[in-house]
């Protein structure tokens, strides 16, 4: 290539200049990132220690009791295999239908689909990176198992960071129309009402970006259609403003007003 820059320029001189100037940049990552990263690292280290000690505990179990345990586990697995399709049948059908076409499903109002967890507020108020506040109010969907009792404050802080990250991942998937990602995260019981720094939920971001199928799935999983963001906007406002009539209809059907 004739216009290739000459090789005799000294890159080290330039790099030194770049580093000097770059050091004057006062922009830094938020300290909440470090806090979340360290908490997550500590939790994983603890989990690894527990896993590492598990085989030792196993060896202490008498052989006869081990056989009984194995039998019990096998029976529980068989029972779970039999029960699971019945539990998830209706939701799987809704997701399949939504994937086939970008047409909103008829969904039930969230009050009919989801039961609020009495412990949800306790376990899901978290601080995301960059100072973004992710406050949730309703993590449990209809198919979710009975919630555990409220964890002590230390245990809640331990899970807060991974919840924040999962909430961000859900919003990102919803925003980009990644329906497989949304379904996978909802199956992982990610807080469907987790908010970004502007107070927007995954449903709001899906509406803003005209993601019909994602809106349908989120509503079917119990997303609150009347939630408001930091500016007081609801999903219905956003659908009307964005001229998304099919989403507007789905929201109204789900009880939005």
């Amino acid at each position: 290539m004739s216009s290739m820059p000459p090789e005799n320029d000294d890159p080290e001189d330039f790099d030194a200049q770049y580093r000097r100037w770059s050091a004057a940049d006062t922009a830094r990552p938020s300290e909440s990132v470090a806090t979340a990263v360290f908490a997550n690292a500590a939790r994983l280290a603890r989990d690894r220690r527990i896993t590492a000690t598990a085989p030792v505990m196993q060896r202490r179990v008498p052989r006869a009791r081990r056989a009984a345990l194995f039998g019990g586990l096998a029976a529980a697995t068989l029972a779970a295999l039999w029960v699971t399709p019945h539990l998830f049948n209706s939701r799987t059908a809704a997701v399949k239908y939504a994937r086939q076409q970008e047409v909103p499903l008829v969904v039930q109002a969230p009050q009919a689909v989801a039961k609020r967890s009495p412990f949800s507020a306790d376990s899901s108020s978290v601080v995301a990176s960059g100072g973004a506040q992710l406050a949730s109010s309703e993590p449990a969907a209809a198919a979710a198992p009975a919630p555990a009792p409220p964890a002590p404050a230390r245990a809640t802080a331990r899970v807060a960071d991974s919840l924040a990250l999962q909430g961000a991942a859900l919003r990102r998937s919803a925003e980009s129309g990644d329906i497989d990602g949304v379904v996978a995260l909802l199956d992982e019981k990610v807080d469907i009402e987790a908010r970004d720094s502007a107070g927007r939920t995954a449903l709001m971001l899906a509406v803003l970006n005209g993601r019909d199928a994602v809106v349908t799935v989120l509503l079917a999983h119990g997303a609150d259609p009347n939630v408001t963001d930091g500016h007081g906007e609801t999903p219905l406002h956003l659908a009307v403003a964005g001229n998304h009539p099919s989403i507007e209809a789905a929201l109204r059907h789900a009880g939005a007003h």
Partner: peptide, 26 residues
């Protein structure tokens, strides 16, 4: 962080990505 921030040119997004990177490292 500078690698992320100077590529995506958005402070909060760079923070998010930085967190994801170190979660993956851990």
């Amino acid at each position: 962080w500078r690698y992320l921030q100077r590529n995506v040119r958005h402070h909060a997004t760079a923070d998010d990505l930085l967190q994801e990177v170190w979660f993956a490292v851990a």
